[in-house]
Amino acid sequence: MTDNLLEIRNLTKQFNTPSGTVHAVDDVSFDVPRGSIVGLVGESGSGKTTLGRTLLRLIEPTSGNIHFDGTDLTTLSSTDMREMRRRMQIIFQDPVSSLNPRLKVGDLIAEGLKAYGIGTRKERRDRVAALLEEVGLNADYMDRYPHAFSGGQRQRIGIARALALEPEFIVADESVSALDVSIQAQVLNLLLDLRERRNLTMLFIAHDLSVVNYLCDRVAVMYLGRMMELGPVGDIHSDPAHPYTRALNSAIPMPDPRAVRAREHLTGDIPSPLAPPSGCVFRTRCQHATDICADGRPEPLSAGADHLTYCKRFEDIYDR
């Protein structure tokens, strides 16, 4: 048995539009070790959500392979994929729109159990009560409607719903970005606790590196559909090896207002995925870019133990 629950190889997702082809996910490869939380970070438009949903085949990939526990999900029929989805779930970004306002909380959480014919009505109700308590809510809440809860409580309901089928893998898609900072911390601690108690494996999608630094074991940095850097969270936080990662890191607020940090500023906007730049797609916003950056796609370079960077000038810029 491999140590990786997921192994993603050369994954690509393109969307054909009247204006051309959108390169949403462009030849991405990485692994998700069992029991780990891998953070996927980048600006809006970098392809994070598309990648997360493609891993679950909620969006069909254009090409590439997604190996889940040794099985290539891209080869499965819709029937086989339905069974596999019991082992993988998603927590959505918006705890309001992801919950049907016409259903009581108990029915929302029990949807998956009912769809798969698991348990009697009473057994499902008992299961829902246990799930609510596991995520820090009162079991009596199952008879209320979503509008009666705060944003943080609704996100806990969404987490309970994702746990109902006892999954091994969860995609958490910007699952704390809509919450206040204090509530964010509570939900992050809940996710850490659930990981330990259930031995869950997670892909945590975020745009905030400070959140990822707190929660995750490894970090994958994406920009315009491509991987920029991949490595242990400590390396990504303290010794990033790509100019884009350094720019994201330097934007993290510091708790001491008197502290001074070297900044790597991003200029301009992220280019259109309809017409990504040649070579390194980040070069049009990179202060270190030269002519070499426009010539051919960057290959992964080792920046340390289990740490990769996709920057042609990495050794020159950071004197490695």
Rank of each mutant, 00 (worst) to 15 (best):
D256S: 08
Y244S: 06
H207K: 02
L103E: 10
I59V: 14
E134C: 01
V41M: 08
D256V: 06
Q89K: 04
M88Y: 11
Y116I: 01
D80N: 15
Y214D: 11
V260H: 09
D26A: 03
L179Y: 11
S19G: 10
D239P: 00
C280G: 01
E7Q: 15
R121Y: 07
P255T: 07
H242A: 05
R195N: 15
D31W: 05
A148V: 04
V32P: 02
N213H: 15
L131V: 04
P298A: 06
R226F: 00
L73K: 09
R87V: 00
E315G: 07
F30D: 11
D94N: 14
R195W: 07
T2I: 00
G119I: 08
S19V: 01
R261K: 13
G64S: 10
F282N: 01
A162G: 05
S238E: 13
A262S: 15
S77I: 03
L191E: 08
T54R: 04
V181T: 13
E166A: 12
R297W: 08
E83I: 00
V176K: 02
G136L: 08
F15K: 10
H288K: 11
R124T: 03
P240F: 01
G70K: 07
G45F: 02
L301Q: 15
P101F: 14
P253H: 11
L73A: 10
D295T: 12
T284K: 03
M1R: 13
D295Q: 15
S150T: 11
T309R: 04
V187S: 12
R195S: 07
Q287S: 15
T12Y: 06
G119S: 09
T120N: 08
A130W: 07
D143V: 00
R9D: 12
A241Q: 13
D239E: 12
F30Q: 06
E315W: 00
G152Q: 07
E133R: 13
S98Y: 02
S210W: 06
Q89I: 01
M88H: 09
H23R: 14
L137F: 09
A129V: 04
N65L: 01
A164W: 03
I91E: 06
H265L: 14
L163I: 01
R320D: 11
E133F: 09
H147K: 11
A115F: 11
R87G: 00
V187N: 13
D295L: 10
S63V: 00
D319C: 08
Q184C: 06
G268I: 00
N189P: 10
G234R: 12
A130I: 01
L99M: 12
V260C: 01
K48R: 08
T21G: 02
V96H: 13
P101S: 12
D291M: 01
R218G: 05
D256Q: 07
R320I: 10
R121F: 05
L215F: 04
D26S: 12
H147D: 09
V25G: 09
A164C: 09
A185V: 09
F282P: 02
K114P: 00
E60P: 07
N138I: 00
